[in-house]
């Protein structure tokens, strides 16, 4: 921290150099410079960049929590360090237990950054949006009234989707995806971690990759432009390009589910926290489309079977739903 003398004398009167308000200045921590970073998101908490780490062919995510000017510097350091450490510890714990989360590749808590493994693929949100988009078109073709379309979506969507063979495959793929999501969340809770911000944007469908042995050959992670679009909140492209080498065997729903962004994660085994995780996810599903509720039932079904105690979390979820997140407060 620089120390500024509040009472400047007339002799050294220099106009104060304040950064222009529209251009927030964030000096990057050593060794990073803007030249080899690509901005992914600028959240309230962290600046997220894409870059490389350890080798030029290893893509990664750099998360930087810049100092908050409004906070007392001691408090700021304490919080930044505690949060980065908590996130890194949770991620390492998950990896130790075999969960699919980004690996921690490096970090410096004092300077406020963390480097994580790059996860190629699309967000589950993008997958759902694409599905809704496709289905929406299909439903509108033969229907006249908005109401009918809506009812169709609410009640019979699975049947409609299943009309064709292609749709049948899509349906199975979606169901498989939901099952993976349910199990992944269940596993996370089982090992004593709650995500804290479990939205469909924080679930990735990782593109299948070719097998490679560590320490040999070309880049290990597939890089996807979809990811960037999803992370920057843009609309997902309508057509999802598939990795060229894999066109034969890969449809767009193949891959495994990876949970990302553990910035708000906590190590807890409280039913309430677990239920809130599910509730947040449920709301993310229903926000995509009312029809996505059907899909979420499959997530819950698999979650319920995933670990001892999952069933009671589902009961708690019912309470959380009724209560909503918001309590009535005394004024």
């Amino acid at each position: 921290m620089s120390t500024t003398n509040m009472a400047s004398t007339a002799s050294d009167a220099q106009p104060p150099t304040t950064p222009p308000p529209t251009q927030p200045l964030h000096a990057l921590p050593q060794p990073f410079t803007t030249s080899n970073l690509e901005v992914l998101t600028q959240g309230a908490e962290a600046l997220v960049y894409k870059t490389t780490f350890l080798t030029p062919s290893t893509p990664c995510v750099l998360k930087y929590r810049p100092p908050k000017l409004y906070r007392h510097p001691i408090l700021d350091k304490r919080l930044t360090k505690a949060r980065l450490l908590a996130e890194a510890r949770v991620l390492v714990k998950c990896r130790r237990e075999g969960l699919s989360v980004p690996a921690v590749l490096g970090g410096d808590w004092e300077s406020g950054w963390l480097v994580l493994e790059w996860i190629g693929g699309r967000t589950v949100r993008a997958v759902l949006d694409e599905w809704v988009h496709k289905f929406g078109l299909r439903a509108r073709d033969g229907k006249t009234s908005e109401e009918e379309v809506k009812r169709e979506l609410d009640e019979g969507l699975m049947e409609v989707v299943a009309e064709e063979k292609e749709s049948q495959e899509a349906r199975e793929g979606l169901m498989r995806l939901m099952q993976m999501v349910g199990r992944a969340v269940g596993k996370l809770h089982e090992i004593g971690v709650c995500h804290g911000d479990l939205t469909t944007s924080n679930l990735m469908l990782r593109t299948p990759e070719r097998k490679e042995v560590v320490g040999r050959g070309p880049p290990r992670m597939t890089v996807s432009a979809q990811r960037e679009a999803a992370m920057s909140g843009q609309d997902p492209p309508e057509v999802i390009p598939v990795q060229q080498e894999e066109t034969k065997e890969t449809n767009s729903l193949e891959g495994d589910v990876v949970m990302i962004d553990f910035g708000l994660a906590t190590q807890t085994i409280h039913e309430e926290d677990r239920a809130v995780d599910l509730y947040v996810l449920e709301r993310a599903f229903t926000a995509t489309h009312p029809a996505a509720e059907h899909l979420f039932q499959e997530v819950l079904r698999c979650y319920g079977e995933s670990f001892k105690g999952a069933k009671t979390v589902l009961k708690r979820l019912a309470d959380v739903r009724l209560r909503g997140r918001k309590r009535t407060m005394i004024g």
């Binding site: 199990r183 596993k187 495994d256």
Partner: peptide, 20 residues
């Protein structure tokens, strides 16, 4: 955990944990 009996690259898994 993902329901697919996918063969894991043991070394890569180890490396991921060790780097962390």
């Amino acid at each position: 955990i993902n329901g697919v009996g996918k063969e894991v690259d043991e070394r890569r898994e180890m490396e991921s944990v060790i780097l962390g």
